[in-house]
Each structure stands twice: as structure tokens, then as C-alpha cells.
């Protein structure tokens, strides 16, 4: 089976880390709010203990997501755009290889969130009639050039069909 070869931008690791921090803070705040409400309305202690266990597990996962996971994710993430198909390989625990024939692509979207903008990166969303996949944290000029290539290949394929 042909494996994709192109890697994401190295700054993707930083992007994922910032995402992990933001998610961790939001989830932590949410759980602390729940814990406060449980204390305020004097709900059974067992539920409160369960929330603390959840809080602890989330904290552990956040540390994992902040330190080890971004590097592993970066190592596994691969993509490749050919004149006939788009290949994507991703996933740490469950490795997935996605294959999309270029003539199935309906549209391509370039997206930039605040983190991407900060590092001059962009996310490329490839949409078919039934699904959509994202290639995150590509450097802006590469994302633009891939987007242009896909459009061109898709057009050529349509003409051939």
C-alpha cells in the first residue's frame, strides 16, 4: 500500500500544544464550576468524588496531550496530493490512511484560526459529496499551492471523465 510522504509544518507541534492548553483550561474551569454547584446545592458526596476523579483524569490527559501526544501526532501525520488522488495518514492509537480520488473532490477550503494566524499556518479542508477531511497546520504558502493543485487536477480529471 502506498504511504503518503509529505509532513506537516513543524510549528504544528506548538499549535497542538496551545490547543491542549486552551482545551485543558476550559474543561478544568467547567469541572470546577460543576464541583462548586455540587457543593453549593449539597449533592451526594459520591458524585462530587466522581467529578474530582474526572478532573484528575482530565488533568493527566492534558499533561499527556501537552508533552508526548503532539510529537507522536506530528510523527504519524502524513499527506500527499497526486494528480489522481489525495492520501492522508494520521492517528496515534488508531492509525488511519484516507484515500480520496481527486475527481470526487467538490471543494477545497482554506481555514485560519487565531493559532494558525499567529504562526502563519493554515488548515486545508477537502470536501467530497459525502465527507470532508482536514489537513491541519500547513504553512500558508504550501496550503495555497496544494489548494491550487487540487483544483487544477480535479478540473483535468473531470475533463477526462
Amino acid at each position: 500500500m502506498r504511504e503518503p510522504t509529505q509532513k506537516l509544518d513543524i510549528k504544528a507541534i506548538r499549535g497542538w500544544r496551545i490547543e491542549a492548553v486552551v482545551e485543558g483550561i476550559l474543561i478544568g474551569m467547567g469541572l470546577l464550576l460543576v464541583e462548586y454547584l455540587l457543593y453549593h446545592f449539597q449533592v451526594a458526596r459520591i458524585i462530587s468524588a466522581m467529578v474530582w476523579v474526572l478532573f484528575g483524569s482530565c488533568a493527566l490527559f492534558c499533561i499527556f496531550d501537552l508533552t508526548v501526544l503532539p510529537k507522536l501526532r506530528y510523527k504519524k501525520w502524513r499527506y500527499e496530493v497526486h494528480d489522481t488522488e489525495v492520501l492522508i495518514g494520521e492517528g496515534v492509537l488508531f492509525y488511519e490512511r484516507i484515500q480520496i480520488p481527486i475527481n470526487r473532490v467538490q471543494h477545497v477550503t482554506l481555514k485560519q484560526g487565531p493559532i494558525s494566524r499567529m504562526y502563519k499556518l493554515a488548515t486545508l479542508e477537502i470536501t467530497t459529496a459525502a465527507s470532508s477531511v482536514e489537513i491541519p497546520y500547513l504553512s500558508q504558502h504550501i496550503a495555497e499551492s496544494i489548494s491550487k493543485d487540487i483544483k487544477q487536477f480535479a478540473l483535468l480529471n473531470d475533463e477526462h471523465e
Partner: peptide, 25 residues
């Protein structure tokens, strides 16, 4: 529309995989 090949640890060890087809309906 797309094909996905998925592998977990056990499958990877046994050289197996799961394939998924997304169909336009």
C-alpha cells in the same frame, strides 16, 4: 467518495486492518 484504512495495535501486530467506504447517498 473515500476509503479509510484503520489499524489498531493488535491489528498492526497481526498485519490486519479495517477498511471503511464512505458512499454518496
Amino acid at each position: 467518495q473515500q476509503m479509510v484504512y484503520r489499524q489498531n495495535f493488535i491489528q498492526s501486530h497481526n498485519h490486519l486492518c479495517t477498511i471503511m467506504f464512505t458512499v454518496r447517498t
